[in-house]
């Protein structure tokens, strides 16, 4: 019976016949693991930042100061389109990661391009919504509800915009440098970032838009 059969998940972490627990002879974690873990910690802190804005919105959602409320301002069609664009971009981003794992340059670039285009569609829809609302006199100064709305949704949109910049540099790096380990690590971090933003969007479309127009 091999060591793998006795301990298929390597709970004991032992390498070849090493019975020590912990890292033992395995040495320190690989750079990919430590970089990914560090970025994971950053993402969690970013989500805590978002949770502050979510809490502010939850508390202020009813304080419209006599101005327009969610029911008058939010259109469901646009939110549905934004949600579809962001979900699909998360999907294509994942496929870009799969293609990169298989070292296929052209599919990886095309999936990244699709991710960027879908993200740009999302951002464009959000900006037109902001522009229309401000045009109707429902800008961030109108009421506490609207301040919290622009803070929360705008913060998410800012993250998407930064993500699009990052995406552009990732495509350029893949193009020029190819599948070097550091480029692959950055691509992994970008994947994490983009998926996390989609998770935040789930919270936003549920709490801000759907609950706002719920009967």
């Amino acid at each position: 019976m091999t060591a793998k059969a006795q301990d298929p998940y390597r709970i004991g972490r032992g390498g070849s016949g090493n019975s020590n627990t912990g890292r033992g002879e395995g040495g320190p974690a690989s750079k990919r693991t430590t970089v990914g873990y560090g970025f994971w910690i950053y993402l969690l802190s970013d989500i805590i930042l978002f949770s502050g804005f979510f809490a502010a919105y939850a508390v202020l959602a009813k304080q419209t100061a006599g101005g327009p409320g969610p029911r008058e301002l939010f259109g469901q069609e646009r939110v549905a389109l934004e949600t579809a664009a962001l979900l699909l971009s998360s999907f294509t981003c994942g496929l870009a990661g799969v293609a990169a794992e298989k070292r296929k340059l052209l599919p990886a670039q095309l999936w990244l391009l699709a991710t960027g285009l879908l993200g740009a569609v999302f951002l464009g829809l959000e900006l037109t919504e902001f522009a229309e609302m401000i045009g109707e006199g429902a800008g961030p100064q109108r009421s506490a509800f609207l301040s919290a709305f622009y803070g929360l949704v705008g913060l998410h949109g800012l993250h998407i915009a930064v993500g699009l910049l990052w995406l552009g540099t990732m495509m350029a790096q893949l193009w020029v440098k190819g599948f070097r380990p550091q480029v692959l690590r950055r691509l992994m971090c970008f994947n994490l970032f983009w998926h996390a933003l989609d998770i935040v969007w789930v919270g936003i479309f549920t709490m801000v838009y759907l609950m706002g127009v719920a009967p």
Binding site: P8, R10, R13, G15, R23, G26, A29, S30, K31, R32, T33, V35, G36, Y37, F39, W40, G97, V98, E101, K102, R103, P181, L184, M188, N191, L192, H195
Partner: peptide, 26 residues
């Protein structure tokens, strides 16, 4: 997948498990 920096006991966040069948892989 074979060229990836693999680790003996940890998987980076977002990575699929280095060995064996992943429940939600690929």
């Amino acid at each position: 997948m074979s060229e990836r920096e693999t680790d003996s006991g940890d998987t980076a966040p977002g990575d699929e498990a280095a060995e064996g069948e992943e429940f939600a892989g690929g």
